[in-house]
Computed example of a mutant assay.
Amino acid sequence: MESDAIRDNTDRHRYEVTIDGHLAHADYRVEGDVITFTHTIVPPALEGRGIASGLIRHGLSEARARGLRVVPQCPFVAAYIRKHPEWADLLAAPLD
C-alpha cells in the first residue's frame, strides 16, 4: 500500500484509505501534544494485506513529524509498536 494513498480525515479524526471500494481507517484523538489511537478498522475483504500496518506506520510517522506523544489505546497499535520498537520513543508511557 502506498503511503500517499492514506489521507488524514481531520473532520472524522482518522487516517483512512479506500482500496477496491472498501474503506479502512485508524481512528485517533489529539489532546495537546498527545495522539491516542483508539481503533483500527479493516474490512474483511482487505484483511491480510498489511493495510492496518500501513495505516499505523503512516499515523506514527505523522505523530513523529508533529512532535506528538502516542497512546496506543487500540490493541493493534500497541502490538505494532511492540513488534517495531523503532516507534517506542513516541510512547507517552511504556507499554504494559
Rank of each mutant, 00 (worst) to 15 (best):
R64K: 08
I35L: 12
A24E: 05
L95E: 01
V77W: 01
I56K: 01
G21M: 12
T10L: 12
V71Y: 05
R29A: 12
T36G: 06
Y80F: 15
D4Q: 07
G54M: 13
I19R: 13
A26S: 13
C74T: 10
V30M: 06
L23W: 13
A92G: 06
H39V: 08
R29G: 03
D33G: 13
H58N: 05
D33T: 15
D20K: 13
T36K: 01
G67P: 01
P75M: 11
V42E: 03
L60N: 01
V42K: 01
D20A: 15
H58W: 09
K83S: 11
E31P: 05
H84W: 04
Y28I: 12
I51Y: 00
T18S: 09
R66Y: 11
Y80V: 13
R64Y: 03
H25I: 05
R7W: 12
P43W: 11
R14N: 05
T40M: 07
V30A: 12
Q73M: 10
K83H: 10
V71P: 02
H84N: 08
P43Y: 09
E47F: 06
T18W: 07
A26F: 07
A45P: 04
R14C: 05
R14F: 07
G50R: 07
A52K: 07
G54P: 06
I81W: 03
I41S: 14
W87S: 00
M1N: 08
K83V: 09
A88T: 00
L23I: 12
H58K: 12
D11M: 09
Y15I: 12
Q73A: 13
Y28A: 13
V42H: 00
D8R: 15
P44S: 02
G59C: 00
D96Y: 04
A79Y: 04
E2T: 14
